[in-house]
Amino acid sequence: MGSSIIQAVIDGVLTGGVYALMAAGLTLIFGVMDIINIAQGIFVILGAYLSYALSVHAGIDPFLGLFITIPALFLIGIGVEWGFIRRLKEGDRTAMSILVTYAVSIIIEGVLNVSFSVNYVQIHAWYVNRSVHLFGFYLPYIYLFGFAMAAVLLIAIYALLYRTRFGASVRASLQDRTAARLVGIDVRRVSTICFGLGVAVTAAGGMVFGATNAFNASTSYDLISRLLAIVILGGLGSMGGALGAAVFMLVLEDVVAVVWSPVWATAVFFAALVVVLSVRPAGLFGRQVARAQ
């Protein structure tokens, strides 16, 4: 029992890293733009399908395929921002963004259902079903590789935000859009790029998700509710909070699956959110309702 709990914690941390990456995109978009991107879930599935298609039809390794799928989703994200989000009025952006991105989400869901059918698929590669045996624990290669990739990308985002001039303008827009505009930052351009970046990370997250789970387009409902739970728990707009909450939630879920039952693990996931928000409405790491209230 003890060792299986440790195994569950390890699995939770490794998969939590990947969820952290997807949630980081969501929280970045919210932080800069006050937009809740409901389409994040379907973008993850879109990324998974792109990797799947590349590996099945072109024989491209899923990790190598990321060099195609990440830019592809970046461009799709920019297109969505430019086409729809930008046209929303300032007044009730947050509420309207939920509806607009939801509409985008069901359009993509329809397109995916038409082009890939509703049958479940899974990405295959040599590392998907193999694992390395270490200190008595099994570490699947895909978890290790996925975690490493997520860590690299998260560090890259961190570096972009805190070590570059562009990052400084993103952080300025995060703090105060009006003030950022006043000091000469092109907030619209920053917003567009951030939306693109926030969507682009789903290509990487989706690839790992698609290799570890069988999926179809409607899997996105489950994904987006988990991702929303994570970013709300972490405090919307807080990067560190999203990382912490992702790992916390996934570990909790995996441990519950071992000690109680896999059936109830998902319920615990959402129950944890409800409990935490009843006590701390701003989330675990959230700034106390700093904006948009």
């Binding site: 919210f30 809740i36 947050t94 509420a95 939920i98 489950d222 509710s225 929303l228 739970a229 709300i232 919307l236 059936v263 109830w264 998902t266 319920a267 959402f270 129950a271 959110l273 409800v274 928000l277 009843s278 409405p281 989330g283 948009a292 209230q293």
Partner: peptide, 28 residues
């Protein structure tokens, strides 16, 4: 009582979360 303690987007998300909990209960 639980959901209305929060506002705006947090309220939206918590209603989605409660929905998924209840759906799971119906399944199990």
């Amino acid at each position: 009582l639980i959901a209305l303690r929060t506002r705006r987007h947090t309220f939206v998300v918590i209603t989605i979360a409660v929905f998924f909990i209840v759906q799971l209960l119906a399944f199990n």
